[in-house]
């Protein structure tokens, strides 16, 4: 008996991929949970309750457990994000080199008032993140699985302009 849960689900092909994941790990372990959530987030952009239930069912784990793992790690989104989401480092090394100003400019440029808010056209969102480990290139942001270094307002504007023609996966 399964309870109807909110939000989009992932297609059966993804569920099949998820069922294959435990083979990589020690028998009986739950290590496949995070790789499974990764596949869901790549597909949907964030983790819906319905999709987390799919993961739970595919891995034969309690849905509450899956959600407990998802909510612990900051790279998992439990709320929708924009099609283009910016992770901007503002830990000390980047802050000393202007990360706050970059964040303010970015928010203005994509037209959001708060971090996590999605721009009206559904395209953009951003959040400040802790040290990205690229301190010699500060200030730094991560966007579509790539780092962007030595940020300036102009560099941010360029990224945004280029993004307007891109798909969710960041490809042109």
């Amino acid at each position: 008996m399964s309870v109807e849960r909110a939000g989009e689900t992932v297609p059966e092909t993804v569920v099949e991929e998820i069922r294959e994941l435990p083979k990589r790990f020690q028998p009986g372990s739950r290590s496949a949970v995070m790789p499974a959530l990764d596949l869901v987030q790549e597909e949907l952009g964030y983790l819906t309750p319905a999709a987390m239930s799919q993961v739970a069912e595919a891995l034969e784990i309690d849905p509450g457990y899956v959600e407990g793992v998802a909510s612990f790690y900051s790279l998992f989104h439990l709320e929708p994000v924009g099609k283009h989401h910016f992770y901007v480092c503002n830990n000390l090394s980047c802050q000393l080199r202007g990360a706050e100003e970059i964040l303010t400019h970015l928010k203005d440029a994509i037209g959001v008032g708060e971090y996590g808010e999605i721009s009206q056209d559904g395209l953009f969102s951003c959040e400040p993140v802790e040290c990205l480990g690229a301190c010699e290139y500060a200030p730094v942001l991560r966007y579509h699985h790539r780092f962007h270094y030595d940020l300036t307002d102009a560099a941010v504007d360029k990224l945004i302009a280029a993004a307007r023609g891109k798909r969710r996966d960041g490809k042109d």
Binding site: R24, F25, S29, R30, S31, A32, V33, M34, P35, L37, D38, G68, V69, F72, Y73, S74, L75, F76, V129, E130
Partner: peptide, 27 residues
Amino acid sequence: IQLFRGHGAYICGEETALLESLEGKRA
């Protein structure tokens, strides 16, 4: 050798938290 991807948690640098995470738990 295999790779396991973390998901944004400083605590995973602590070795026993890292192991918990590798085992699919909250770190």
